[in-house]
Simulated scan of single mutants.
Amino acid sequence: MPPEWAEHAATWMSWPSDDDLWFGHLAGVRAEYAELVRTIARFEPVHLLVRDEESGSTARAALPGSTASPFPITLHRVPLDDVWIRDNGPLFIRDAAGRVSLVNWRFNAWGGKFEWQNDDRVPEYVAETLGLPHWDRPEVLEGGGLEVNGAGVGLTTRSCLLTPTRNPGLDEEGYAELLRKTLGIQKLLWLDGGLENDHTDGHIDTITRFVDGRTLVTSVAQDEADANFSVMAKNLAELRGMADVHGQPFRTVELPLPANRLEGAEGRLPPTYANFYIGNGFVAVPLYGDPNDERALEVLRPLFPDREVIGLMSRAIIEGGGSFHCMTQQQPAGEGWRGEG
C-alpha cells in the first residue's frame, strides 16, 4: 500500500446527502465539503459519488464546471449510505512494477452503528469503473483505522481493530499476518486508543499520522482535566519508543488538539487537526474556528515543505463525527494490474 504522499492519479469522494445523519446541518456541511472538493481539484482529478438525482444536481450547482477547474470533477451515480469513503472505499495497492490493483474489505459501519449495505459495495464500483482487478477479503477493515509509512510500517489502535464487532477471531498477531499478506506491512505498531466519543472506536487517522517515512505527528491535549489528555499523553510516550523496520526511532512531532470543547447532538464531538488529507502538492487541514487553528497550521507547514498547507473550515462537517481524511480516498498513480487473481 503506497503512502498518502505518493503521487495520486485522483481522489475519490462521496457527496453528503442525508440531513438526518448531519443533525440538520446538511446545508453547512455541503458548503464546507464543496470548498474541499474545489481545493482538491486545483491539484488533481476528483471522482465524486452521488447517490441520487438531488445529490447530483446540488453537487453540480456547488462545483465548478470542467472549464473552471484545473482538473476534472467527475460525478458518478452510485447508491450510498454516507460520505466516509476512507472507511467504506477500497484500499489501493501497487506491486513491485508499480501496477495498481485494490483490496475490497468488508465494511459494517464501525460495528453496525449505522446503515452500511450500499457503502459496502463501493469498492466493486470503483474497480469496475477503473477496470482494475480487486482482491475480495472477508475481514472488516476501515482505511481510517490504519496508517502506513510506505516503508513497511503500519500503525493502528487496539480500541478500534480489536473490538468484537469487527473481526472477533483476529488478535494482534492475526492482524499483523493479514496486513503483511494483503498490504505489504512488515511491522504493525499499536496504540491503545483515540479520542473521546469517536464513533469509529478510535481511528488512528484522528490522532496520529505519518507525514513521511520517518516522521509522525500525534495529537496532544493541553488541559489535564480533559478526558483526552491522559490517552494522548500515553500515545506520545509509546510513539517515542517505537522504531521503523530497521530499528531506527521515529521523529515524533506534537500537534495540538483544538482548545475548545465542541458539543453536538450526541454529546462531545471529536475535532482534530490530524485528520488532514495529503494530495499532489497540497495538504488540506480541517479548521474549527478555534484558538489553536493557526497554531496547528504552523506545526504542519514545515513538515510539508513541497506542498501548500491549506486550512479549510470543517465546523459543520465535524457534526458528523469526522473530517477531511475520513471523506477522501487517494487513487495512486500507476498502470492497472492485469494479472490473474
Score class of each variant (00 low, 15 high):
residue 289 G to Q: 02
residue 32 E to K: 09
residue 276 F to N: 13
residue 44 E to V: 13
residue 316 A to V: 00
residue 320 G to S: 12
residue 253 V to K: 10
residue 281 G to C: 09
residue 290 D to K: 08
residue 184 G to Q: 04
residue 105 W to K: 07
residue 151 A to W: 01
residue 188 L to Y: 00
residue 200 T to A: 14
residue 17 S to H: 14
residue 316 A to K: 11
residue 125 Y to I: 03
residue 50 V to D: 07
residue 279 G to T: 02
residue 178 L to S: 08
residue 105 W to L: 11
residue 33 Y to V: 12
residue 292 N to A: 05
residue 29 V to N: 05
residue 273 Y to V: 03
residue 86 R to H: 04
residue 64 P to L: 02
residue 192 D to L: 03
residue 7 E to R: 15
residue 183 L to T: 06
residue 304 F to A: 10
residue 255 L to N: 00
residue 143 G to R: 01
residue 327 M to P: 03
residue 304 F to W: 03
residue 5 W to E: 05
residue 242 M to S: 11
residue 29 V to P: 00
residue 4 E to I: 08
residue 257 L to E: 09
residue 37 V to M: 07
residue 257 L to N: 07
residue 224 E to L: 15
residue 107 F to H: 04
residue 220 V to P: 04
residue 13 M to T: 14
residue 264 G to V: 05
residue 101 S to W: 03
residue 232 M to V: 00
residue 124 E to D: 10
residue 271 P to R: 12
residue 218 T to M: 14
residue 9 A to S: 12
residue 298 E to M: 00
residue 167 N to Q: 03
residue 190 W to F: 02
residue 334 G to T: 04
residue 215 T to E: 08
residue 317 I to W: 04
residue 208 T to M: 09
residue 333 A to M: 04
residue 156 T to D: 03
residue 222 Q to G: 15
residue 252 T to N: 10
residue 10 A to Q: 09
residue 187 K to V: 09
residue 258 P to C: 01
residue 66 S to L: 09
residue 74 T to E: 15
residue 170 L to V: 04
residue 315 R to G: 06
residue 154 G to P: 02
residue 186 Q to D: 15
residue 330 Q to S: 14
residue 306 D to E: 09
residue 211 V to P: 00
residue 230 S to A: 15
residue 195 L to M: 07
residue 242 M to G: 14
residue 98 G to K: 04
residue 321 G to A: 11
residue 336 G to T: 06
residue 203 H to D: 11
